[in-house]
Design a protein around this nucleic acid. Structure first.
Lengths: 167, 167
DNA sequence: TTGGAATGTCAACAAGGCTGACGTAAAATG
DNA sequence: CATTTTACGTCAGCCTTGTTGACATTCCAA
């Protein structure tokens, strides 16, 4: 623990390329773990990671419009539409015509969709919970700080809006 | 800063699903930022993220065999081979028959390959450096701790072997 | 009423994963 | 020495998930 001298002390004067490289590789390998558990569940179904992401953010921001979901996910509408269509066909997602603006479609999870989302996110939370417990509260705070500093500004705005409030 | 009550104190008794969800979404959005800069460079060339990963790890573990690279990257040999072939054809990577075991191919970056790798990793390091500076040394230590705890055990072994030593 | 915005859909394509099968060379093993 | 195993490459085919471009529909708003 704290074996790396460049992480000690108050300054980051010794922030070497070597130090940064370790962070980059940690990010790469950790992301594999991050997605591993949901991926295993999805592999049995006909779904992929894209379906998971859609389910997650539809659950998070209930009644979100397709356009809003697009900007969160950062993909094209054609790409999202393909995923969304299968989820709607399979009865996991419900698309309701907007009341105020009837061009908009508002997206909701059905009970079946909520069940799968719960299963996927619980698997992902379990790993995150275990990592948080192992690392401790101070490490968790640092983890979040670095991640937030790593986001693109436009993406960070999305994240911040989601983080606390409700859209 | 430190607005989240569950991150204060010594224990993680208040480690709620809400808290975990924020971590999950932070990871999702941060990874987008993490890959954004190299992706922009690669988009102009004919290459993708897979080429970047190959260049990175060939540079990291010079003279690595194809099999070793496969286990680091976690893909099939067919998938890696496709990427590797284009890199060799384009003169970015050199494949040398093993001296002791002549079945093995040892992989090296050419000067042209090293140049692209440097360009890609410098872009990625720049973002990482900026994030590290913004978050501070203690946060960086926590960041790394949580990431390491998040890895699959088998993957973590790979990471640890890479982290300090040289293969 | 007309322009533009939001959505959906069709077609075509590319990257990058995957499996399975096969071939070759060379090392390891009986 | 004969056989088996290993390392690598390659061909073929498939899937998911991303992309562009073109076009239709609906309907709000100027």
């Amino acid at each position: 623990m704290m074996a790396d001298p460049s992480l000690q002390g108050e300054s980051l004067l010794f922030l070497t390329d070597e130090q940064l490289r370790k962070g980059i590789e940690a990010m790469f390998f950790a992301y594999r773990g991050f997605t591993a558990d949901p991926d295993r569940i999805l592999a049995d179904l006909t779904y992929g990671r894209a379906h998971h992401r859609a389910l997650h953010f539809i659950n998070r921001t209930r009644g979100t419009t397709v356009n809003n979901l697009l900007s969160i996910l950062g993909v094209t509408k054609q790409s999202l539409n393909r995923v969304l269509r299968t989820l709607i066909e399979d009865g996991l997602v419900e698309s309701r015509v907007g009341r105020k603006d009837r061009r908009e479609r508002h997206l909701y999870l059905t009970s079946k969709g909520a069940e799968l989302e719960r299963q996927l996110s619980e698997a992902q939370r379990a790993r995150m919970r275990s990592a948080y417990r192992a690392a401790g509260p101070q490490a968790v705070a640092g983890f979040r700080q670095v991640l937030e500093a790593m986001m693109d500004d436009s993406i960070k705005a999305q994240y911040m809006a989601l983080k606390d409030g409700r859209s």
